[in-house]
């Protein structure tokens, strides 16, 4: 049984690093790079990033989010309900789990549907694309913001739970 728990934790870390690593890539690298490419008149532009990089990054991003959540839920096991209902000491991992859950819903409910319009996977007018860009950016930034407390509570549940016990 301990092997199963270790494998679940390992998978949770691998998928989580893939998900959050790509979230940080989008926010710290790709979005500023595309803005710089658009401002660089006479430069090569950002079309290659949009065509070849972004769809692959988004594929790994959104499915890694699902695997991270499923592995995390499996890892919680019988603590899933006490964690999600913030009962006692389970509230520490529960807050991390809720933040992760909200982030997953933002990925699939807001970021991906808007990115489909931006990347041309779903037909959209220029006006709809501009609106989708703004919505997707703010949703991505929201997830970047939420990742900070999410990782704090994930770490605290394993390594600093005692700090919360009065």
């Amino acid at each position: 049984m301990e092997w199963v728990i270790l494998l679940e934790r390992w998978l949770h870390f691998l998928a989580g690093i893939t998900w959050i690593g790509l979230l940080y890539y989008f926010n710290f690298v790709q979005v500023p790079a595309l803005a710089a490419a658009a401002a660089d008149t006479g430069g090569p532009g950002g079309a290659a990033i949009t065509k070849y990089v972004a769809p692959r990054a988004l594929l790994w991003f959104r499915w890694a989010a699902v695997v991270t959540w499923l592995a995390g839920a499996a890892l919680l096991g019988s603590r899933f309900v006490p964690a999600m209902t913030l009962q006692g000491e389970n509230a520490i991992i529960g807050l991390g789990a809720w933040l992760g859950t909200i982030m997953l819903l933002i990925v699939w409910g807001i970021i991906w549907p808007n990115q489909k319009k931006i990347l041309g996977i779903k037909p959209a007018t220029d006006e709809e694309k501009a609106k989708a860009r703004r919505t997707a950016l703010l949703a991505s930034r929201t997830n970047l913001m939420l990742s900070i407390p999410m990782l704090f509570f994930m770490a605290a549940s394993a390594h600093g739970a005692g700090l919360f016990l009065n």
Binding site: L86, G88, M145, I148, F164
Partner: peptide
């Protein structure tokens, strides 16, 4: 008022503030 999520720095500061708020909430629950 400018949206803090419009900049990376504003987003990170918002995340740190949210962490502090949630730590206070967690302390009151646990």
């Amino acid at each position: 008022m400018k949206n803090p999520l419009d900049s990376i720095l504003g987003t990170i500061i918002s995340g740190l503030v949210l962490t502090a708020v949630l730590v206070v909430i967690a302390n009151s629950i646990v």
